[in-house]
Amino acid sequence: MSGELSTAQVADYLGVKTQTVYAYVSRGVLAPLRRDPGVGSVFALADVQALGRGRSGRRGARATSDDVRTAITQVGPGGLAYRGHDVRGLAGASTFEEVRDLLTGVPAAAGPPDAVLDAVMAALPPGARLLDRLKHAVLVAGAEDLGRHDRSPEAFATAGARSLSAMVAAVGAGTPAGAGGDRERTAVALAAYLGLPADLVDLALVLLADHDLAVSTTAVRVAVSAGADGYSALLAGLAAADSPQHVGASVQALDWLRGAVEDPRGALAAALADGPPPGFGHVVYTEVDPRAQLLLDRVLPEAGDDLREAVSLLESELAERRGWVLSVDLALAALMLAHDLPRDAGSAIFACARTAGWTAHAIEELAEPGMRFRLRGVYTGPRAG
């Protein structure tokens, strides 16, 4: 086999569909060497072989010592379930707090943030980024918890709940007093800050509560394995999530969708020529992203005709022509457009929701041997002597 492969050859080598290869490219998992007229994307054989060794392709399908066994969340080409409960049955029927307790297995309640958090938020530079505010909120929550170094499941559940309470307050920094409502109900507080119906926020929080071993969740587990307390582990998750390809992905999707609503046909033509736009293509969901569909089913009926028609056209055409699945990032972008929300509103909902999954994985990791994550470097530099 030559040192370069076409998209079809990559799909054959890995034992996946061509749309899955497109999804790998859209997520930065696999990068093309170049695009040749009449051939399309061309990939380096070495890159494809490396991907095959680490993924479930035909030649790479094997369990390895790097696998992380978990009983929390199951994802598949078109499905998502929390501890055996399909998300389609949970969405709209369970509150975020109920789903959080299902994921963690340890109910927890958090006290309201105090004046220390308000002072920290006020001390941040004007225009401080949302994720920076959220990180400081977790730092404050941890600093105030006398039991932060207790590495029991109950203490970790408390750390997660306290951190979330502080993060929600940080989202509402500058909002008139009392606007947050009942702080024991995350959706109520966030809905008041964002000007959204509480049931819609609850739905989004449930859909985004966990997603298996995403990069941020892996960071949380590595931190716990190394002996970190619950708050530090959550900070590790927030740091890894602070990326335009993770929690910030809805911002990229929003910027693209705003122009696509104005010219859907032009956006479609550009996407077909240039590759998957933000909010389309997913490494896991090669059939349908159930989170996106459930959220769009709630958002689009109340949206304007332009937004509804644009999303419908782009979803059907890009799925049929390229196999690019519409992801939850695009659904969050549609939510923000439909309700004229700030650009970081989707990131706020996503980060607050994911504290549930991060906490659940942190608790699960407590039962594993410490320091079990140790990558082995393959040295390629100059040799000594």
Results as ranks from 00 to 15, higher is better:
199 D>P: 00
167 M>I: 01
216 S>G: 12
176 P>M: 02
156 F>Q: 09
149 H>D: 15
163 S>F: 12
212 D>L: 10
194 L>W: 13
198 A>F: 04
169 A>R: 06
214 A>L: 15
148 R>I: 15
150 D>Q: 10
187 A>S: 15
159 A>P: 14
196 L>H: 05
153 P>E: 07
218 T>N: 14
149 H>P: 13
200 L>I: 08
197 P>W: 05
174 G>V: 10
205 L>Y: 00
159 A>E: 10
181 G>T: 05
188 V>C: 09
156 F>K: 12
185 R>K: 11
153 P>Y: 11
196 L>A: 10
207 L>Y: 05
223 A>Y: 03
148 R>N: 12
145 D>W: 02
171 V>H: 03
215 V>M: 07
181 G>V: 06
182 D>V: 13
203 L>Y: 00
214 A>N: 07
210 D>K: 02
157 A>K: 02
204 A>W: 05
150 D>L: 15
204 A>D: 09
216 S>C: 02
210 D>E: 10
184 E>Y: 00
202 D>C: 09
148 R>P: 04
158 T>G: 08
170 A>Q: 04
199 D>V: 12
222 V>Q: 06
191 A>M: 08
201 V>T: 02
152 S>P: 11
220 V>H: 06
157 A>F: 03
146 L>A: 11
161 A>N: 07
176 P>R: 05
154 E>M: 13
173 A>W: 11
167 M>K: 04
154 E>G: 15
212 D>G: 05
200 L>W: 12
153 P>G: 03
216 S>T: 06
156 F>A: 11
217 T>E: 08
210 D>M: 01
187 A>E: 07
160 G>A: 09
189 A>P: 14
199 D>N: 10
147 G>T: 13
183 R>F: 11
214 A>S: 14
179 A>I: 07
197 P>F: 11
192 A>L: 05
170 A>R: 05
157 A>W: 09
173 A>I: 07
195 G>R: 07
202 D>I: 06
200 L>Y: 08
203 L>F: 06
213 L>Q: 13
201 V>C: 00
182 D>K: 14
161 A>V: 01
209 A>W: 01
214 A>D: 11
219 A>K: 00
174 G>K: 07
170 A>D: 05
146 L>F: 03
171 V>C: 02
156 F>S: 03
165 S>V: 01
213 L>E: 05
163 S>V: 12
160 G>E: 07
193 Y>R: 06
182 D>P: 08
188 V>W: 08
213 L>N: 03
205 L>W: 00
210 D>S: 02
204 A>C: 10
188 V>Y: 12
217 T>F: 01
165 S>I: 10
183 R>H: 04
214 A>V: 08
165 S>Q: 03
171 V>M: 00
147 G>R: 14
211 H>C: 01
217 T>A: 01
158 T>Y: 05
145 D>S: 11
220 V>P: 15
150 D>N: 12
145 D>F: 12
149 H>A: 07
219 A>W: 03
150 D>K: 00
